[in-house]
Amino acid sequence: MSDMNTAMVEKYRNSFLSEVEANVEEGEWVKMCMQCGVCSGSCPFGPYWDHPPQELFMMIRAGKREAVLSSESMWMCTSCYNCIARCPRGLPITHIMHGLAHYAKRLGLAPKNQQTMKFASIFWDNLTKKGRVNELQLGLKLYFMNGFVEGIKTALCMKEMGMSMLMTKRMSPMEYFGGHSIKDTKGLHAILKKAREIEEAKAKQF
């Protein structure tokens, strides 16, 4: 359990709803859910969620902190926005899902081997390094995300496409070694550092 998590448990004890309202992006909307279930019915991935959005909201109100934050559910959201478009109460459900996922990650409660989370980290690191996404590195990282053997297998599967991309100059193997960057990488890093400082200062307030 992270220090932050211990602090939050201490602080909110019985009211997980208040915790969500204070710390999760758009969390103050959770209380407005009227349990109609339109979001759950509209979600294209609905059948694969352990707890569809409607249920997650009810779990938050029922104080099921562990179950919600360690759930895989909100990580399943693909941001199709069907639920937001349909919610009769106007809840920004997609944003709440991402907010919950993010909060769970910050607290260190997200499932350890969560694939979406893993890829999101890889993507973030790749992007922030030079300010541009390095597609070749990103692709390879994705292939080998779950180990060497699976990486080789996936690479062999995608062999023909890779070769075609090489031939038509859609992909340069040289990109693997460094690749190009934005003009002011240092500046970007400074911005991100500052943003992180602000975010952490904000989190400490609660």
Binding site: L17, K31, M32, M34, Q35, M58, R61, A62, R89
Partner: peptide, 13 residues
């Protein structure tokens, strides 16, 4: 109803 939710009344089915 919405005002009640806004005021923080918890609704449990």
């Amino acid at each position: 109803y919405r005002s009640g939710q806004d005021k923080g009344i918890n609704f449990t089915k």
